[in-house]
Amino acid sequence: MATIAELKCAIRETLESRGVLGQLKARIRAEVFDALDAQREQRPPLSHENLIINELIREYLEFNKYRHTASVLTAESGQPQVPLDRQFLASELRVSEDKSSKSVPLLYGLVSHFLVSSDEGRKLFLRGTTHPGGHLS
């Protein structure tokens, strides 16, 4: 007959092998963030710019199977549970895609563009928003 310690170990191993333990831990973390945030002052409304940035990050996290991190990002940021449509994101960023670029997150394409861009070594001039809740221009 198995001891309680052996039973706990077997259950833990089974949950880990099925990926359930990681999901439970991520869900608990998300709930802790929600509980802590509920006690703090309210976050400002999610700006359009932050919505886009968070969605780019979420798409990257989910592509790389960082689902637990993505669930915490969603809970902590106030990002909608349902991901934004990729075509909408591409349109908002004024990005055109080919068939191969659609197989990876948009963030990969954006970074790749700047890594291989040959603008004769010139640096890109970035403009900030007028305030933290600003919009992409």
Score class of each variant (00 low, 15 high):
residue 79 Q to R: 15
residue 70 A to I: 05
residue 56 L to P: 12
residue 56 L to E: 07
residue 136 L to C: 02
residue 71 S to L: 01
residue 132 P to T: 08
residue 106 L to A: 07
residue 65 K to S: 13
residue 129 T to C: 03
residue 34 D to P: 00
residue 121 G to E: 02
residue 107 L to N: 02
residue 88 F to T: 08
residue 109 G to W: 04
residue 134 G to S: 05
residue 110 L to K: 07
residue 64 N to Y: 11
residue 23 Q to D: 14
residue 9 C to E: 13
residue 123 K to I: 02
residue 55 E to S: 15
residue 24 L to N: 09
residue 11 I to P: 04
residue 11 I to M: 11
residue 62 E to Y: 06
residue 2 A to S: 09
residue 92 E to F: 06
residue 108 Y to E: 01
residue 37 D to M: 04
residue 4 I to T: 12
residue 73 L to K: 08
residue 103 S to C: 06
residue 20 V to K: 14
residue 91 S to Y: 05
residue 80 P to L: 04
residue 25 K to T: 13
residue 42 Q to D: 07
residue 80 P to Y: 07
residue 32 V to A: 04
residue 75 A to H: 04
residue 25 K to F: 11
residue 82 V to M: 08
residue 72 V to F: 07
residue 116 V to C: 00
residue 57 I to G: 01
residue 133 G to N: 09
residue 60 Y to C: 07
residue 62 E to F: 03
residue 68 H to F: 03
residue 8 K to S: 11
residue 86 R to F: 02
residue 73 L to V: 06
residue 8 K to H: 13
residue 64 N to G: 07
residue 5 A to T: 08
residue 60 Y to T: 13
residue 51 L to R: 15
residue 16 E to G: 09
residue 109 G to D: 00
residue 114 F to S: 02
residue 111 V to D: 01
residue 44 P to E: 08
residue 120 E to D: 07
residue 120 E to I: 00
residue 7 L to R: 09
residue 107 L to H: 07
residue 15 L to A: 15
residue 85 D to W: 01
residue 136 L to F: 15
residue 26 A to K: 05
residue 1 M to C: 05
residue 50 N to K: 14
residue 7 L to V: 03
residue 101 S to M: 12
residue 72 V to A: 03
residue 4 I to V: 12
residue 101 S to K: 14
residue 16 E to A: 14
residue 32 V to P: 00
residue 43 R to E: 12
residue 116 V to T: 11
residue 97 E to N: 08
residue 26 A to G: 09
residue 35 A to S: 08
residue 62 E to P: 03
residue 89 L to R: 09
residue 100 S to K: 15
residue 93 L to V: 11
residue 38 A to R: 09
residue 9 C to F: 10
residue 131 H to M: 02
residue 53 I to T: 10
residue 114 F to G: 01
residue 47 S to A: 12
residue 22 G to K: 12
residue 127 R to P: 00
residue 16 E to Y: 10
residue 39 Q to E: 11
residue 120 E to M: 01
residue 89 L to F: 06
residue 48 H to Q: 15
residue 46 L to A: 12
residue 27 R to G: 12
residue 24 L to G: 15
residue 14 T to D: 14
residue 97 E to C: 13
residue 18 R to M: 13
residue 63 F to I: 04
residue 92 E to Q: 15
residue 124 L to P: 00
residue 80 P to E: 03
residue 133 G to M: 08
residue 95 V to C: 12
residue 3 T to L: 05
residue 108 Y to A: 00
residue 114 F to V: 06
residue 124 L to C: 00
residue 106 L to Y: 11
residue 113 H to W: 04
residue 52 I to C: 10
residue 60 Y to L: 08
residue 5 A to E: 14
residue 44 P to S: 13
residue 101 S to Y: 07
residue 79 Q to D: 00
residue 91 S to K: 13
residue 79 Q to T: 08
residue 47 S to C: 10
residue 66 Y to I: 00
residue 13 E to W: 02
residue 54 N to V: 03
residue 48 H to Y: 09
